[in-house]
Design a protein around this nucleic acid. Structure first.
Lengths: 331, 331
DNA sequence: CGTCGTATTGCAAACGTTTGTAATTTTATT
DNA sequence: AATAAAATTACAAACGTTTGCAATACGACG
C-alpha cells in the first residue's frame, strides 16, 4: 500500500505538505502542489479513508436503516436518497433490520461504532421509542422517514396518511359505493393505523356506519391482499369496492377478484396506496394514492447532511407531504 | 465519546487488557474479564470501528457495485447477498455506478480508499477491462456477477444466457411458431449478446432463417419493450411469438399487444427472461426463463468472504447456473 | 546587507484501537 | 521459603492521516 509518506519522500517534502496539497488547503506553493499532485497520481496513491476518518472524526457516510431494502416500495426512496447523498459527496450505508429486535444491534454497528455520521431510519414501529430517544441523547443527527414522532426535537418526513386514506375512501364514496371494504396494513405501524383512520373518517362524514367485518388486517404483502380479498368475496352482502393499505396488497386483491370471474372495476372497484412503478401495468391499471417517495428520500438525507454541515439545530423539522389520487382504471 | 481508555481507567487496568477481554482473547483472568464486560456495558462503551480498522487493516465490509440498486431485477440478488454477508458478520456497502465512466471513481472511493475488504461487481460492460484488471493487479478479492470474464484468475458467477435464449426460443418453436421475434437487450452487454445468440442457434437448428427485421434492440426497459412491440406489430407478415431479453421488456410488449386488441398467447405468444416477482402477476401471467438470482447473490458474496478468510487462491472460481423455463400462460 | 513580514514547509501530537513483548503477579514445586 | 513456571497484566509502538504551531525560506524594503 502506498501511503502519504511514500509520496512525501518521493517529492522530497513532509507528509503534512502532501496532505495540504491534496486537500486543496491554501498555504502550499503552487509549484510544489503541482508536483505533489503529479507524483501522487504517478504512484497511484489514494488517501486511506479509514485513517482520515479517525482524525477528522467524520466518515462522510450516512446510514440508512430500513426493514427490507428490496421491497419495490423503497426503490424510489432510495433513488431520492442517493441523489442527495451524491450531491454532497456522502456515501449511503444501508442496513436491513428484518427483526425489530435487531434494530439496536444495527445502530450499534453503524452509529455507535462511528461508521456513519448520521442516520435515516425508515418505517419504524410505534412501540419503538428507546433506541430513537437514545439517538437524540447521543446527539446523533438523524431523521425518521415515514413516521411522525411527537417529540419536537426529532426530524420527521412523512406523508399525511390519514388524509390519504380519507382521500381514497372519499373517491370511492363519490363514485356511489356504499359498501367499501378495507384491507389494512399491520397494526402497530402508524402508517396502517392512519390510513384506516382516514377510511373511518370518510365513512363517518358520509353518514355510513363502520362495519368491522369489512376491514381485514394484512401485512402489506401480496399474499395477504389475495387471501383477504377471497374472504371478502365470500361474505354477503358483498362489498362493491375495496381500499387497500398499499399497492402490493391491491395486486393480490386484483388477482383474487379476476380469479373469481368478477371484473374490476365493474363488479368491485379497487384503490391502492403508494403508486408503485408497476401499478400502471396491472390489469386494469391501478387507481391509487400517490406518495412522493423520491422526494421524501431526497429530503430525508438532505436534512441529515445539512444537519451535519451546519450543526444540529434545537428543534427538528417536520416535513409532511400531502398525497394525491392517481386515477387509472381500477376504480 | 467513551473510549477504551475510559473503561480501562474505571476498571483499573490497562487498555490492552480491555481490548483482549472484549475481543474474547485468551490470557485474561476470568474475574477481570467479567468486570470489564460489566463496566463496559454500564458505561455504554462501543469499540470504534474506524480505529479498529486502521490497525487490523480490515473493515468487515464488502462493497457492491451495480448500475442501479433500485431495479426490481436486483432485489433477489441483494437478498441473497445479505444472507451471506450477515452470516459471516460482514456489512454490505452498495454503490451505484449509473455512468460507466464513474465506475473507477466508485472503486477509488470504495476499495482504494480501503473502505471495503472485497468487492462484487454486478453487470459490467464488455468493454470494461481496465478497472477489472487493475483490481486483480492490486490483489483485491472480488467477484464478477452476471459476467463470464475469460481471465482464469477472475471469479465469476453467472447464468448460461446463451442456453437460456436457446431454451426460450426452442420452447416457442415446439409450440409450432415459426415467426419468432426477439426484443434484445443493449448490445455491449454480454448478457444481451448471449441471449440473442441462443435465439439464433435455436432458429438455426430448426432450419429456420435468421431474419434481422425480427430482432429489435432495446435496453431492458419497459418503454423499449412497448415501442419495439408496436413496431413489430406493424410489420408484415406479423410474428406470432416474441422472446424478450428480460421480463421488464416483456411487460412493455404485453401492454402493446393488448392495447392493439390482440390477445396473448392466442395471437402472439410472449416469453420473457428473469422471472421477476411480478411476472406471475401480469395478465396473462408471464412464461419466462428463470434465473436463480437469490442463489447467485448469495454465492457471490460467499465467495468473496471465503477469499477474505482463507486467503485468495490462484485460480478463480467460475460458477455457471443453468436457467430453466417457468411455464405460465403467456406462451 | 540587515531586518522585517510573509509565504511555505516541517515537526510532532493526536485520533482509538490492536498486538508483540516485557514486566509483574500468581501458582506450583521442591 | 525459595525458586521456577505459568498466568496475567502493562508498556509502547503501530496503523495512515490531519492539523496547530514552530521553523525556515524567501522577498522586499530601508
Amino acid at each position: 500500500m502506498i501511503t502519504i509518506k511514500d509520496v512525501a519522500k518521493r517529492v522530497g517534502v513532509s507528509p503534512s505538505v502532501v496532505s495540504r496539497a491534496l486537500n486543496n488547503r491554501y498555504g502550499v506553493k503552487e509549484s510544489t502542489r503541482e508536483k505533489i499532485v503529479r507524483v501522487a497520481k504517478e504512484m497511484g496513491y489514494y488517501p486511506n479513508a479509514v485513517a482520515r476518518s479517525l482524525v477528522t472524526r467524520r466518515t462522510a457516510t450516512i446510514g440508512v436503516m430500513m426493514a427490507d431494502l428490496s421491497e419495490p416500495y423503497y426503490t424510489q426512496i432510495i433513488k431520492g436518497m442517493e441523489f442527495s447523498a451524491s450531491k454532497t459527496g456522502y456515501t449511503l450505508l444501508f442496513s436491513n433490520s428484518y427483526e425489530s429486535l435487531e434494530k439496536s444491534k444495527v445502530l450499534e454497528k453503524m452509529v455507535y461504532a462511528e461508521r456513519v455520521d448520521g442516520v435515516v431510519i425508515v418505517g419504524s414501529n410505534i412501540e419503538e421509542q428507546e433506541y430513537i430517544l437514545k439517538l437524540v441523547e447521543r446527539k446523533v443527527p438523524f431523521v425518521l422517514l415515514e413516521r411522525d414522532f411527537a417529540d419536537p426535537r426529532i426530524n420527521c418526513v412523512y406523508v399525511d396518511n390519514l388524509y390519504g386514506g380519507y382521500l381514497a375512501t372519499n373517491y370511492l364514496l363519490n363514485k356511489g359505493h356504499t359498501r367499501i371494504a378495507h384491507i389494512s396494513g399491520k397494526i402497530g405501524f402508524q402508517v396502517a393505523l392512519d390510513r384506516l383512520e382516514g377510511y373511518k373518517r370518510a365513512l363517518r362524514e358520509a353518514g355510513l356506519p363502520f362495519d368491522e367485518k369489512l376491514v381485514i388486517t394484512g401485512n402489506f404483502v401480496w399474499q395477504d391482499g389475495y387471501a383477504a380479498m377471497k374472504q371478502l368475496l365470500r361474505s354477503r352482502p358483498r362489498c362493491t369496492a375495496v381500499f387497500t393499505a398499499n399497492d402490493t396488497t391491491a395486486f393480490g386483491a386484483l388477482q383474487a377478484i379476476t380469479e373469481s370471474g368478477l371484473s374490476v372495476p365493474e363488479d368491485i372497484a379497487v384503490i391502492g396506496f403508494d403508486d408503485l412503478e408497476f401499478s400502471s401495468l396491472t390489469n386494469p391499471p391501478l387507481t391509487t394514492v400517490h406518495q412522493p417517495r423520491y422526494e421524501m428520500g431526497k429530503e430525508a438525507v438532505r436534512i441529515v447532511t445539512s444537519l451535519l454541515q451546519q450543526g444540529a439545530s434545537e428543534k427538528g423539522v417536520k416535513l409532511c407531504y400531502r398525497p394525491k389520487i392517481i386515477v387509472r382504471r381500477s376504480a
